[in-house]
Write a protein that binds this DNA or RNA. Structure first.
Lengths: 326, 326
DNA sequence: CTGAAAGCGCTTACAG
DNA sequence: CTGAAAGCGCTTACAG
């Protein structure tokens, strides 16, 4: 450790670089060490440091779909809370895929201080059997000992059904995501339940990956059938699906919302500016990131975890895709 | 190290877990160790391992905008090449921002085996002064000792000018990105140069962040002015900008491409399915990821780096936003 | 206020 | 084929 260029012991250098000088190191030595550090461009080796301390300062965020504008907000929220003290890293898996057991193992080998897991599957959590601090995000429908922050997607689906019924729709189609994440099951089942209560008939179903092109294809393949069944609105599991439907509706010359209403879920940035704007369920992503970050901090500080999942409200944003502007 | 439950020394366990048993450990001991590992759910502590070996197996990808569908492909390419041997992690910064010096320092503290830096600024690289393996991606206009993989965006811009001139346009507006990344400077300057050669006039300029809403706003604010100047086409620095323009053109009742042609840059997935489809410059993102991964592997293996930046071809994809379907 | 020393969990020559 | 030992770069009681 070349920092001994300051003429002090390694112990003193360590004290200075980790900021634990209070009443332990003289002013002169602090200055001398800082100077040497600056001159040599010394950076503490996190490997040695973490090993000695028994834990790293890495927080890993595991998510199936990092390349999603919705997720960017979640990340921003987490960063805001975790700040300087932890190094946030994203685990990368195949697009749309939850990481495989061996990926997880490699992550744990880094001995992260904490784990944030977005949209986990039950299977994934079973594999994990984490004892380290862990917080689940968007884990509706999952039971786990780990604290979780969820969106009230069921209520969101309910609001959607209410709105469509009020707009006079009688028969709708549901375009689901084929990724099989729990949140989509909850969205779908809640919508069906609410629709049934209201006398709104879900007469057709479809599904595709979360991709504009795939959703567009799913819609064009089904539309003639749906049309015969009297479908006047398509309820999509995500905004991305809705974009595909909006596009193909335009190609097919269908007037939106007059001949066909379209709804989404997530309220991605694009939904506010599309034409027509997309009626969708807004989920407070930034807030989710913040809460998850805070909960993880507590856990990492050794405090007790929340036991009841925290649920964030979902709200309905009505735009031109379901209602003519007043 | 509880693995000594197999009745062997730590050294033997280490040999087994790192797969270096060839002619060094007996079959029985291999089996015994593997059994103990499985029973105890043992995971090698990467901190200790990396410290002993002098380097980690972490590769960090630094990028200003991870939440971008374009970037998802780059990542896929990198993963494909790096495979099992390295742990790919994404560094997270504020959306659209290149990481600050202190962020970089924290990254280096992890002693990554290699660094992949996307769209770096000259300033960022100066701060870095890396001696570790590093490969730059999309660093057009940057000079650095590190190998880099670039897109030939200048040629792409040239193709765009050629196409617009051939379509009979005489006056166009350029909608730039306000992020100030080098690649946008190159795109803009190349387009202006080519346009000037062809007698195509760039009569107006605008700029916004890379965001559909922001681009839409920039367009509506400028359109009456641009219109007076005889603008018949808007050339956008990214597809995202183009989406904003397309939307507002529709709102304004402008027929695309008849009254207003629109072009993008990047060829995001959405551009193929938008209506009209977006004429844009296709950049081979997956291929860039692969090449960058391969180059980094060479570097990490101690082989000589390529000295000349590798440039991937940009191609023009003509769609409905500039040309009526035949 | 300071430094010598033990130890974090591994890997890797080295001697047997 | 096997194990004892040194060492990777730190941190943290501990003794002074």
């Amino acid at each position: 450790m070349v920092g001994a260029r300051a003429g002090v012991s390694v112990a003193t250098v360590s004290l200075v670089t980790s900021g634990k000088t209070a009443g332990r190191v003289s002013k002169e030595n602090i200055a001398r060490v800082q100077e040497a550090v600056a001159e040599l461009g010394y950076v503490v080796n996190g490997l040695g440091s973490s090993l000695a301390k028994g834990r790293s300062n890495i927080v890993i965020l595991v998510a199936p779909d990092v390349s999603n504008p919705f997720f960017a907000k979640v990340i921003a929220g987490v960063r805001e809370v975790l700040g300087e003290s932890f190094q946030l890293l994203l685990s990368v898996t195949e697009a749309g895929q939850t990481p495989a057991p061996q990926d997880v193992r490699k992550l744990l080998a880094l001995r992260p201080a904490g784990l944030l897991v977005d949209a986990p599957s039950a299977h994934f959590l079973a594999e994990l059997q984490m004892s380290d601090p862990m917080v689940l995000l968007d884990a509706a429908g999952i039971t786990s000992a780990a604290p979780s922050i969820n969106f009230d997607v069921a209520h969101g689906a309910h609001l959607l059904a209410l709105h469509l019924e009020a707009q006079g729709h009688a028969a709708v189609a549901y375009l689901d995501s084929s990724t099989g994440t729990e949140t989509f099951r909850v969205r779908r089942e809640a919508f069906h339940r609410s629709a049934a209560q209201l006398g709104l008939k879900v007469v057709a179903q479809g599904s595709s990956m979360i991709d504009v092109g795939a959703a567009a294809l799913a819609f064009t393949d089904s539309w003639s059938d749906w049309s015969h069944k009297g479908v006047s609105a398509v309820v999509c599991a995500t905004d991305t699906h809705a974009y595909g439907v909006l596009q193909e509706a335009r190609v097919a010359g269908l007037a939106v919302p007059k001949e066909l209403a379209v709804t989404g879920f997530d309220d991605l940035p694009y939904s506010a500016t599309s034409n027509p704007g997309l009626t969708t369920v807004h989920l407070p992503a930034l807030e989710m990131g913040r809460l998850a970050g805070r909960e993880l901090q507590k856990l990492m500080a050794g405090e007790a975890a929340q036991t009841v999942p925290k649920t964030l409200p979902a709200t309905l944003v009505v735009r031109g895709s379901t209602a003519e502007p007043a």
